[in-house]
Design a binder for these strands. Structure first.
Lengths: 126, 126
DNA sequence: ATAATGTATATATCGGATATACACATTAAG
DNA sequence: CTTAATGTGTATATCCGATATATACATTAT
């Protein structure tokens, strides 16, 4: 568990933790059942409060990445890729809806939107 | 100029003013060269500070809807529909890019995105 | 000069976001 | 049962951006 936090970035600490652990899980470097560092332990390492690590773990739990058990610890959950996909799909749909609304207000046709989408989808490197 | 502000809405006052004046202009109820109420005048009517009306007018000016001249007043600019369209297009492109990024991370294919876009574009009432 | 207009600086207030201390509850191990 | 680990809950501190303001200043028209 190499979590690195940067005070300079302006990004909140708990967010940095969440993102990094999510990435580790999504990349398969942390697998189902793997134990995460205890909240206290991680807090010590990073020299931050337990409450901040708790907040990060809470978010990971809400998003279905891990599970915590009082007295035992926190563990990586079975990845529910389908669920994750569904959630992302909802967010994507919301974004597309907003974009479509804006477009309609300026009489920008659907075809133009489709073109743009095609370009940005193709052009963005992951 | 019937500007109506509602303290209950939670929406900031200056935003309410901006939106309502933009709408009046876009709907053609305010035309090129028309004088807006002076900042002080509008502030009196709405029982708010001049600074708040100024802030609203500043935003309208930034967005190219009006122009203000010290000592004279504020006036509706010639509508540059093309410019407005371009600006909206930039915002739309940014939204689509973000959506595309999210989609790629979940291996959601472009075709699925296109479908969704088609649905939300068609289905949203203006 | 006067009275209208817009402008600039410094300030108050509020609320959400972030991070915290400390006490409490649960579990596992001896 | 005691101990030491774990996660949890309540109440609090702090900071920062957003919002709105008062007051004084600058410009224009008459």
């Amino acid at each position: 568990m190499d979590i690195i936090i940067s005070n300079a970035s302006g990004e909140p600490i708990y967010t940095q933790i969440v993102t990094q652990i999510k990435t580790l899980i999504l990349e398969g470097k942390l697998k189902e059942g793997d134990a995460l560092p205890s909240m206290r332990n991680l807090a010590m390492q990073l020299r931050i409060s337990v409450i901040t690590t708790k907040r990060a773990y809470e978010e990971l739990e809400r998003d279905g990445f891990i599970e915590s058990y009082t007295g035992k610890g926190s563990f990586v959950k079975a990845q529910n890729k389908e669920l994750y996909r569904e959630e992302q799909l909802k967010k994507i749909e919301a974004m597309l809806t907003e974009a479509a609304d804006k477009a309609k207000r300026c009489s920008i046709p659907l075809s133009e939107l489709q073109e743009i989408l095609e370009i940005v989808y193709g052009g963005t490197e992951s």
